[in-house]
Design a protein around this nucleic acid. Structure first.
Lengths: 266, 266
DNA sequence: CTCAATTGGTTCATTTATTGAACCGTTGGT
DNA sequence: ACCAACGGTTCAATAAATGAACCAATTGAG
């Protein structure tokens, strides 16, 4: 991945520093985060602002994501009504499983949450929309790598693997084993590798060319992760992955593994 | 405004060529539209693609807006839940007036539709989401200019004013008179200046610093544009503009003109 | 079945925009 | 009054953007 070293590339990375937690940031802060010179950062911000990708708060002088995203999200949506489909599918998953569900997609080299619907239970898993999911520490990431281009997988495993909990696996060889397992199983399971007390189950979904687009996952408290519950979730995830692939104009591959055992009653 | 001629600026303008009508475009087409060299255009597209701002269809090789917009729209929304408020307000307007309503915002130097909800009547005005509204030919544009910074207004009137219908006003002085009128009235009306047989009514809404953010408008077929109907619409638009300003963290200015005559019964 | 036109994409010398250290004026804390 | 950190500006040095010419692959007409 490294540095493609194109100016627009750099400018666009600035946008990636805006997250739910840090929804606004000042010039110096962004320069520090990005490693760019302050003058450079400012020029980028001005360009981004001119096109509505960031906005500057007149009072605090801090920058935040601009209204262009509302507009372009609309345009994309009108020709490619994906967000709506995702939303419906997630609601279905939450209703059927009772747990928090989320969908991620590869966007700019990272797997990022596209949308999420939370469980209605009081003890539930909470996720940030737009959150970036580390490949090695989440079920979504593992299952994505399992069906991704080998180059992508290699690149992801070469990157530094940061620990998130005591159980996070950071040995590339061990991750690779999990990835291979996920490819054979057709799903991935992550037990407390990203957040304590949280278990994740994920399936991939595919685009028109048959390439993997992202993952759909359910996250639940470890206490409720019984075999029966997980089997149910995997069954629901499979139909969700199928619908999601359809919404992208794709489909699950013909040789995609049956999920729990084989309860073929479509 | 002219051309700041920064590389990122140029790259970002490519995104503007994707509209509801032209949701995908090939390399040559984009190069033609933008006037950039093919090589340049390709480099831009590659950078944009690397960050998820465009995607390339594997089969047709055409580009379309990427999933990054879904993600960033989410992030922006989570810290600044505007789209949701807009949607609710528009539904309210459509219910009360029976006509198509839309909200626009300045984004990248142009006034672009943020969202729209169509009337349920069979004879209704149809709008494209993400559509760019010409300042001089729409009620939204006029009323925006009326409350915008004088520099912005001057710049907009210096740009070439293209005709859209037989009734489009293209004389800068005449437009300026309309703008001044709109500032005095607190609203703008455009009769068939953008689309034949369509009348538009628009009010501005304001952000935290008291600066105008965009416009909220109702568009209806000329045949239904009776005085009574328009008065009702203006009344509803005013409450919509107030809510919308609140959603931005702003408010209508204290000296904002009362709309129809004065039916003060809040 | 050819020919010509158009497509997406590549190359590389020229040029032009990008870069960053040092700078300025403000602001906010002590 | 001080200092530090802020947002923003300047300008020579330099690295990156540019674009005409060039491929290879489709496409469509005669």
């Amino acid at each position: 991945m490294a540095n493609t070293s194109s100016t627009v590339d750099k400018a666009l990375t600035l946008l990636g520093f805006f997250t739910e937690r840090r929804s606004a940031a000042g010039l110096s802060e962004l320069a520090r985060l990005s490693g760019f010179n302050k003058a450079t950062t400012l020029r980028f911000l001005n360009s981004l602002e001119a096109k509505g990708f960031v906005e500057q708060d007149a009072a605090t002088r801090a920058y935040h994501l601009g209204p262009a995203f509302l507009r372009f999200a609309q345009v994309r949506e009108s020709s490619f009504p994906f967000a709506r489909a995702v939303r419906d599918i997630l609601h279905g998953l939450v209703e059927k499983t009772g747990e928090t569900a989320h969908v991620s997609a590869l966007s700019g080299g990272v797997l990022a949450n596209i949308d999420r619907v939370e469980s209605k239970r009081s003890n539930r898993v909470v996720l940030d929309p737009g959150e970036v999911l580390p490949f090695h520490a989440t079920a979504s990431g593992i299952v994505y790598l399992a069906f991704a281009d080998p180059d992508v997988t290699d690149a992801a495993l070469k990157a530094p693997l940061t620990g998130h909990t005591a159980k996070t696996i950071t040995d590339p060889a061990a991750i690779r084993a999990r990835v291979d397992q996920a490819r054979a199983d057709g799903y991935a399971r992550a037990g407390e590798t990203y957040e304590d007390q949280v278990v994740g189950l994920a399936l991939p979904y595919f685009g028109p060319s048959g390439a993997v687009c992202g993952a759909v996952a359910v996250a639940l408290p470890k206490a409720r992760a019984s075999d029966g519950a997980e089997a149910l979730i995997l069954r629901e995830l499979r139909t969700a992955a199928r619908k999601l692939s359809a919404a992208c104009g794709g489909a699950l591959p013909d040789d995609f593994p049956q999920v729990p055992a084989d309860d073929v009653k479509e």
